[in-house]
């Protein structure tokens, strides 16, 4: 078992080893038909130690975290936790794409301020991934006039942000 497999098992649970490749997870997945590798196959990649194939799968980023796979897995595995593990390893390896950039911004905003502002989240994401501009601007055009997004000057922070930061730093390393 290589280090990659061990790391995924550590993050997603040792029971991943008991996968029988029955396909319940992928057949329950709402975005499976759009994926290059089904969630079932991602688990197989993990168990075979096929790190490159797993980390380069677009599928990781098409997971909506809906937990349908996790509710149904007959082995009690949490396939979504496997995807989460792969996302973490992807980022830890220094790999970047538009999806991981979004995750990174989202996490940083919580870590620094305790809450997320959709305005600042979208604004920063748009700067880092200019291709998303059209989509975000048109969405903003729908929501801003309805008063659903406030154009903020300075993002709010909660008082307990140091505690939140510790949550990320001390629990995130474990």
């Amino acid at each position: 078992m290589n280090e990659f497999t061990k790391e995924v098992l550590r993050l997603a649970g040792d029971e991943v080893k008991t996968c029988i490749q029955c396909g319940t997870c992928s057949a329950s997945c709402p975005t499976a038909h759009l994926m290059d590798n089904s969630i079932r196959k991602l688990v197989k990649f993990v168990l075979e130690g096929m790190k490159d194939e797993a980390l380069n799968s677009r599928s990781i980023w098409l997971c909506t975290s809906c937990l349908a796979c996790t509710v149904r897995c007959p082995r009690g595995i949490r396939p979504m936790a496997v995807v989460s593990a792969l996302k973490q390893i992807y980022e830890a390896e220094g790999m970047r794409n538009r999806d991981s950039i979004h995750e990174e911004i989202f996490n940083r905003h919580i870590k620094e301020r305790g809450r997320v502002s959709e305005f600042f989240l979208s604004a920063e994401y748009m700067l880092r991934n200019p291709q998303s501009a059209a989509q975000i601007i048109s969405f903003g055009a729908e929501l801003i006039p309805r008063g659903k997004i406030d154009i903020e000057i300075r993002p709010d922070s909660i008082e307990g942000r140091d505690e939140v930061k510790r949550i990320f730093e001390e629990l995130g390393g474990a």
Partner: peptide
């Protein structure tokens, strides 16, 4: 002084 739940974007389970 509640904080964000992390929604579906915090991949580290313990965090």
């Amino acid at each position: 002084d509640w904080n964000c739940c992390g929604a579906t974007h915090v991949s580290n389970e313990l965090v």
